[in-house]
């Protein structure tokens, strides 16, 4: 059953996209920030209602249970967490968002025809997995589960270069064969890359890396929109990817640091602040 025509669906998604733009603009100024956040939440609610009405959705009870479980986990933690632990929580939510994008793309691999759709699948899976494991490491660092000092070992740059190469090869195989096995390998490589990317970052720079991973997840979501043919995902993901990039640079320059120095400083031996 689809109650909404594609035209109405598109229009409602446009309204949701405008809500997201107004949310980001509102959040940029202290006076309008709270209202901006509420507008964003309203847009998201509208989009979720729209997706249920716009296409043929099976398994609705199971999906509603999953939504209830996700809300029941996230909302109480968000309300009760200590103020000092909020950065970890943001990183955690960012990571699970990236993980969700990677899973969505992997599940859609079988339905994607044409090489470009598969390239979008590969991009979403890789970037989503990097965001997931990278965020997990930042949570570990902020919680003190992992040393907040930059973790480096000899030849890290070489290992990183090698594994990126393997990721490209695996991605190529996914595009060429569309085989699930290669997709799983790609996912695992993405997880390793994310961890290796964040481990060398010093504790003081972790918030900037969270912002960068946030932009990454945005890009993964945009690519998943190409995979699913959903323009709202494309627009919302691109907005977050673009604004997140600007924000990351602003945060880095507010601390008097460059983004590449934070990410790759430890590789060069000139360590980042611990």
């Amino acid at each position: 059953m689809s109650l909404l025509s594609p035209e109405w669906t598109g229009l409602l998604y446009l309204v949701a996209a405008v809500c997201f733009i107004l949310a980001l603009r509102g959040l940029s100024s202290p006076k309008t920030a709270r209202r901006g956040n509420l507008i964003g939440a309203g847009g998201a609610l509208l989009a979720v209602i729209t997706v249920f009405l716009s296409s043929r959705i099976e398994n609705i009870p199971a999906i509603l249970v999953a939504v209830a479980v996700g809300s029941a986990i996230a909302a109480p933690i968000s309300r009760r967490v200590e103020m000092t632990q909020m950065p970890q929580l943001v990183a955690l939510f960012n990571g699970v968002g990236g993980g969700a994008a990677a899973l969505v793309a992997m599940l859609e691999l079988g339905n994607s025809d044409g090489p470009w759709a598969k390239v979008a699948v590969v991009f979403t899976m890789l970037v989503g997995a990097v965001s997931f494991s990278g965020s997990a490491v930042t949570v570990g660092k902020l919680q003190g589960l992992i040393s907040s000092r930059p973790l480096v070992f000899p030849g890290l740059a070489l290992v990183m270069g090698g594994i990126v190469l393997v990721a490209l090869v695996a991605g190529g195989f996914v595009v060429a064969t569309g085989a699930a096995l290669w997709a799983v390998i790609l996912l695992v490589i993405g997880l390793i890359v994310g961890a290796l990317l964040v481990l060398p970052v010093g504790g003081a720079d972790v918030p900037i890396v969270i912002s960068l991973l946030n932009a990454f997840t945005g890009l993964a979501v945009a690519a998943s929109g190409i995979v699913l043919g959903n323009l709202l995902l494309v627009v919302a993901g691109t907005l977050v990817g673009a604004s997140g990039t600007i924000l990351t640079r602003a945060m880095a320059s507010a601390m008097g640091r460059g983004v590449s120095g934070i990410l790759f400083g430890a590789f060069k031996g000139g360590s980042t602040a611990g």
């Binding site: 949701a16 997201f20 946030n214």
Partner: peptide, 24 residues
Amino acid sequence: HTPLMSGANAIHGIILIGAITVAG
């Protein structure tokens, strides 16, 4: 900076509509 990052973070949670589509 931090609230804006957090708000942008919430917005990419809209991947939910993708997850619902795939689950459906």
